[in-house]
Nucleic acid binder design. Structure first.
Length: 436
RNA sequence: GGCCCCGUCGUCCAGAGGCCUAGGACGCUGGGUUUUCAACCCAGAAACGCCGGUUCGAAUCCGGUCGGGGCUGCCA
């Protein structure tokens, strides 16, 4: 059993193609088959090396690997169609000499019989049948002698011994053409499997008009590999038992093309985000710390100082529970990094009051005298002061929060103050009090 | 227009003739918890497109219809 994915390097890896690749990969893994990646770059105008690299790199990021093909090699060379034009031309000439194709304005067209039909079995859609009277003679070689997709792709599938062609449903109606070529070359027919398409929120085929739908764009948004993998699996398939969160091992164990739904699915970013939050929260502490530091350093374009790392270590566990993507991280911890500290004046105004002022002054005095600046002591002081001044929690705490973190929304207050440390906390309180 | 595919809550998925007064999840609404925001817990609104047929019985089978989508390129 041999499956393949054949992306065209005419754009970055699109989530639709990533999903198709993923399903192929899952099926190959589940059945001990061979998985092959080739590059379908017959469109020399639009294909680029950068896109090819992006596609390969993002397959890898997703956890998709392959046994044969571009970048890993194999018995068939480089697995790039642009390097095999001679082979395609040879086949076209053969078809020409056999009278199965003819020249038309310098291009070569495959001669489709006027009647008869093409039948094939599709794993997702069942028995398919097309009348040849509905299929036009199609170009296999352009007038510049470069092959079209139909020719090159089909020959590659034959030459590389592909036994199951699983691809997007958009190519379903081209399948008779491919079978015609295979028959003309006396080649065994592979099985077919046309996977449902991914749509945007407007119900149309997912494309650039829905924004940046590349895998890279989601990585840039702070989506975890596990979440993307998991979510993509859920579009058109499910492992059963209402299971929503699972890893690749479970998916490989349960996956089968016959369980893939025939109807298209709308890509719902909200659910991806939810899953991502789930994965972030279920990451163990050390791993999250590594990921977080890496993310923050990236966002800041600098390495972090030891002091900053120490402060972060304290706060990270509570931040971990509060973010949905990695990109939510830096804004939440910025207040304890060596970066310019600014208090949001509008938010300060909304919590400012004479009571709040005296509360800040009070806790500052007490913090100053505090020998052990521990979480427990901070909480003790802040709660006692609240009682002493007979203030509502919100009044004292929110004012403190804005004074120390700069905004009304922050990680838990005691942890924030504790992570910041005594000196900096005192300084910020003083600064705020001064400005009153 | 022609050919083809598809049709269960807004969205994703479960459902393969009686277990369905249709289940789970995201999102949404309300409530609880609470130092903000999250997380978490509880509750709620929300769907078998429609019409026929088969059957004792249909979301599940068949036909039609309507709706959506894909293809219809010397793009893939």
């Amino acid at each position: 059993m041999k499956l393949r994915i054949a992306p065209s390097p005419t754009g970055k890896l699109h989530i639709g193609n990533a999903r198709t690749a993923l399903f192929n990969w899952l099926y190959a893994k589940a059945n001990n088959g061979t998985f092959l990646v080739r590059i379908d770059d017959t469109d020399t105008e639009r294909s680029t090396e950068e896109f090819k690299n992006d596609i390969i790199q993002n397959f890898r990021w997703l956890g998709i690997d392959w046994d044969e093909g571009v970048d890993v090699g194999g018995p068939h060379g480089e697995y790039k169609q642009s390097l095999r034009f001679e082979r395609y031309q040879e086949v076209a000439n053969q078809l020409l000499s056999e009278g199965l194709a003819y020249e038309d304005d310098g291009a070569v067209r495959f001669k489709v019989p006027d009647n008869g039909s093409i039948e094939f079995k599709d794993y997702v859609r069942g028995d398919m049948s097309f009348n040849l009277s509905d299929v036009e003679d199609f170009v296999i070689l352009r007038s510049d002698k470069s092959p079209t997709y139909h020719l090159a792709s089909t020959i590659d599938d034959i030459d590389y011994g592909i036994t199951i062609i699983a691809r997007g449903e958009d190519i379903l109606s081209s399948t008779p053409k491919h079978i015609l070529i295979m028959q003309a070359l006396n080649s065994d027919l592979p099985d077919f499997c046309h996977l449902p398409l991914l749509f945007g929120p407007d119900g149309k085929k997912l494309s650039k008009r829905h924004g940046d739908t590349s895998v890279e764009a989601f990585r840039d948004k702070g989506i975890l590999q596990e979440a993307m993998f998991n979510y993509l699996c859920l579009l058109g398939w499910s492992p059963g038992n209402d299971l929503e969160k699972f890893d690749s091992e479970l998916a490989v164990e349960k996956f089968d093309f016959k369980d893939v739904l025939p109807n298209s699915a709308i890509f719902d970013e909200k659910k991806l985000l939810w899953l991502n939050g789930l994965y972030i929260r279920s990451t163990n502490e050390e791993d999250f710390e590594k990921t977080a530091i890496n993310q923050i350093e990236n966002d800041l374009s600098r390495t972090l100082f030891t002091d900053e790392l120490n402060r972060l270590t304290k706060i990270l566990p509570s931040v971990q529970e509060r973010i949905e993507t990695l990109n939510d991280l830096t804004p939440q911890v910025l207040f304890l990094l060596d970066e310019p500290f600014v208090v949001n004046s509008e938010e300060w105004d909304s919590v400012n009051s004479t009571e709040a002022q005296s509360y800040l002054e009070n806790i500052r005095e007490k913090f100053k005298d505090l020998e052990e600046f521990s979480l427990e002591n901070i909480e003790l002081i802040m709660r006692e002061t609240l009682k002493d001044l007979d203030l509502k929690t919100k009044v004292g705490f929110q004012a403190t929060r804005v004074a120390v973190t700069g905004t009304k929304i922050s990680p838990p207050l005691f942890e924030s103050i504790h992570s910041l440390g005594k000196e900096a906390s005192l300084a910020r309180l003083a600064e705020t009090i001064e400005k009153l």
